[in-house]
Amino acid sequence: MEQIAPMSGNLKIETKGFSAFYGKTQALRNVNFAVPEKKITAMIGPSGCGKSTFLRSLNRMNDFIPGFRMEGSALLDGQEIYGAAVNPVLLRQRVGMVFQKPNPFQMSIYENVAYGLRIQGVKSASLVSDIVEKSLRAAALWDEVKDRLKGSAFALSGGQQQRLCIARALAVEPEVILLDEPASALDPISTARIEELMQDLKDRYTIAIVTHNMQQAARVSDYTAFFLDGTLVEVGETTKIFTNPDDSRTEDYITGRFG
């Protein structure tokens, strides 16, 4: 099945014939996909359709799962993500990730954001505090936490924690941010803030988001991809996918006939 992504602009990430396996179970089948630069690309589909696996494959977070292996190719700026010469640690500094459940570290708010810089060996206190402030501002959290930067990150609300995790990801200046259902554990108001934030960020970052929530995909994304049973069924401009999909399965899903 040859899926040509009808996408304009520079393609930041591209996969060709990408398949993924956990042991003998095939989680992804021959996915040909592209994430355009400085756009928001949403991935939707029912549980277990492989969308999260796909997202996690893009910064090699699946490497930690025993029995995981892949076939095909995934490219970041035309370079093979799974190439023998690639150090996944350095890959992940370029392709950041925000998870479903907010996972701040057991450190102060400040240290959470600074952590990514510290592990890269940034010693300069003024540079670190500049970047921390910049990142917190970018994550629209600065005004809420600027007076308690030394306080524990666990004292924040769920939504604030998630924005802190976004700020933490931004601090290392990645080029791509992968969001794995970032709002599924949040209340509607926090969700709205995260969605606003994504719009602000897309000028500077390439964003890929996995979501359970079709309305969210329709609201925030420029492109939408629909996954089903490990295959990419359809991908296209969000307006088209939600109004006039080519594939009948996509139509069934977005009109709520299954999933």
Partner: peptide
């Protein structure tokens, strides 16, 4: 918690 740090490139 661990994945959060790995995703930052730790």
């Amino acid at each position: 918690y661990i994945e959060g740090a790995l995703a930052l490139g730790a």
